[in-house]
Design a protein around this nucleic acid. Structure first.
Lengths: 208, 208
DNA sequence: TTGCTTATTGACCGTCTAGTCAATATTATT
DNA sequence: AATAATATTGACTAGACGGTCAATAAGCAA
């Protein structure tokens, strides 16, 4: 109830401002979902006028795409940094599941934001879902690890590595959704359980 | 370019009309996503005037909730009907994965529509995701099967059945998304592979 | 200080969309 | 045929939302 003192405007560099707007978008997306993430809501969150948004981004879709890109890249780097890619594939996979669980739990807003964007991004005519290159890259990296595990005899070679990567990623994501609704559960334990399930499933040359 | 003959209006019963509107909503949701599923788009798809929509549904959210409810129930019944629930748990689970893959592949539009609705449904203030009772029920049923499998010694009892149900469901869904983008792949084979992976993972009393 | 660049504002606009409502057409009833 | 009941229409409204633009202010260089 007191604001008569008009803050002197601060002038920010382009990159700083862009980052700030992306952060605001993440916050609003996580809190209000895609439908709530209007241009007005985002600039209000950033404490900035609406005109500025269009100075830095072509349109809403542009902002959303860039938000998803930056966020995915940051998280992928964060997870990748915790992995020793020279280790045997099963070790890498187990570590990846653990690291992903930790990091994505710590960054709920970022995870939710990316989720919202990917679920709602479509071609201009709305008929087709859009995929993000960075997301595909992450997926390809996972696939590569499974392939290596197959070459080295650790992973059942009769399974398609794409189906492995895709279902593992989905399983982790589903678990995280569930953990978010049940904060009482022990996240690390579930991450370890899930890793065990998935690895045992992939490893065994399943006898009849 | 010819329409002078005005079709005589047809008067439908309440339930018929509701079903028709729900079907139209499914079609539009699948084709255009949640953002494209406007009241206008839906009534146009149904070939009906907009006023009628609000005669049968309180508001858009109401239509969406009912669309999801009816669709989920129909699909759950369809899958459940293919299962012999007296069979050993691993058999039921494998059959469920296969049946779900088949049926959801045959009903892409319905699956997509439910996906869109669940991803975007929120409390009126937009701050919280809404969950559907029917969806929870389906989940509970899956959980129960895992529990029985544990009692009967077929499923590793040290694993939380909730995490099993949740990650299995997510894995199937992720696989279906992937299969949809790669129609050349053999769906039945992947369903069988996924069932093997998941069951082996859940079954083994994983040795060190 | 002066002038230049550009970050920033805030008022403004056209469009789209959920939802209303009084009028009308269709069916069932007697 | 007359009447009642209600399914259906189409024109309408109020508000929200994406995006524009001319004006302004902040920092920088001379």
């Amino acid at each position: 109830m007191s604001d008569p003192v008009p803050q002197p405007r601060r002038r920010l560099g382009a990159e700083e401002r862009r980052d700030q707007l992306v952060s605001a978008a993440v916050a609003v997306l996580a809190a209000q979902g895609y439908r709530g993430a209007t241009a007005d809501a985002i600039v209000q969150q950033a404490g900035v006028s609406k005109g500025l948004l269009w100075h830095y981004f072509a349109d809403l879709d542009d902002l959303m795409v860039q938000t998803a890109r930056r966020t995915v890249m940051a998280i992928a780097r964060s997870i990748g940094g915790r992995l020793d890619l020279t280790a045997p594939a099963p070790v890498v996979i187990r570590d990846a599941i653990r690291a992903a669980t930790r990091i994505l739990t710590e960054h709920r807003a970022e995870r939710r934001a990316v989720q919202e964007i990917i679920a709602n991004l479509r071609t201009p005519d709305g008929s087709q879902r859009l995929s993000l290159a960075d997301y595909e890259d992450m997926f390809a990296a996972q696939e590569a690890i499974f392939r290596r595990g197959q070459r080295e005899g650790d992973i059942n070679p009769s399974l398609d590595p794409r189906i492995l990567a895709v279902s593992y990623q989905a399983a982790v994501d589903g678990m995280l959704d569930y953990l978010e609704e049940h904060p009482d559960l022990d996240k690390d334990r579930y991450a370890a359980d899930l890793a065990t399930i998935l690895l045992d499933g992939a490893r065994s040359p399943h006898p009849r």
